[in-house]
C-alpha cells in the first residue's frame, strides 16, 4: 500500500504538519492549542500506523514549535513514544530533532524533558 502524504495547513491555534515519505521530510511546526487535541492529532497517529509498515529510510522527525498548551504537551509525548516504538521495531533508525528559538528557555527545557523520557536518538537544536 502506498503511504500518502500527510499535510495539514497551520492556523493560529493548530500547527502545520507535513509528513512526506517521498521527500523524506517529517515536520510539525507552529502553535498547538487546539480546542480538541485528540481529534486534531488523530490523523497523525493513523498515519504513523501506516508508516510503521512502510518505513524504509532513516527518518528524522522535526518538531519546530513556537508554543503548545498542556493538552498538546501530552499528545506530543504520545507521538514521541509512538516513534520510539516504531524505532524499536524497525531496522531503520528514527531520529527526533527538537528545535527551539535561541532565546526561548521554556521550549529548550521542554525538549530536554522529552529527551529524558524516550529512548530514541534525540537532538535539541537552537535556531
Amino acid at each position: 500500500m502506498e503511504l500518502s502524504v500527510l499535510k495539514v495547513a497551520g492556523t493560529e491555534d493548530t500547527p502545520e504538519i507535513l509528513f512526506d515519505t517521498q521527500t523524506n521530510e517529517y515536520i510539525i511546526s507552529g502553535r498547538s492549542l487546539p480546542e480538541d487535541v485528540s481529534s486534531f492529532y488523530k490523523p497523525v497517529f493513523d498515519w504513523l500506523n501506516e508508516f510503521e509498515k512502510n518505513i524504509t529510510s532513516n527518518p528524522s522527525f522535526k518538531f519546530k514549535l513556537e508554543y503548545f498548551n498542556t493538552a498538546s504537551s501530552k499528545i506530543i509525548l504520545d507521538i514521541l513514544m509512538r516513534l520510539e516504538e516504531i524505532n524499536n521495531a524497525s531496522s531503520s533508525t528514527v531520529n527526533i530533532e527538537w528545535y527551539y528559538m535561541e532565546s526561548d528557555d521554556d521550549m529548550l527545557e521542554a525538549g530536554e524533558e522529552y529527551k529524558e523520557l524516550v529512548e530514541i536518538p534525540f537532538n535539541v537544536i537552537a535556531f
Binding site: E35, V37, S38, T70, A71, S73, K74, L77
Partner: peptide
C-alpha cells in the same frame, strides 16, 4: 504528564 489521560473535555489536567 506521563500518567495523564486526555479527558472527555480535552484537558490533560496539567
Amino acid at each position: 504528564r506521563l500518567n495523564s489521560v486526555i479527558s472527555s473535555v480535552g484537558g490533560a489536567g496539567l
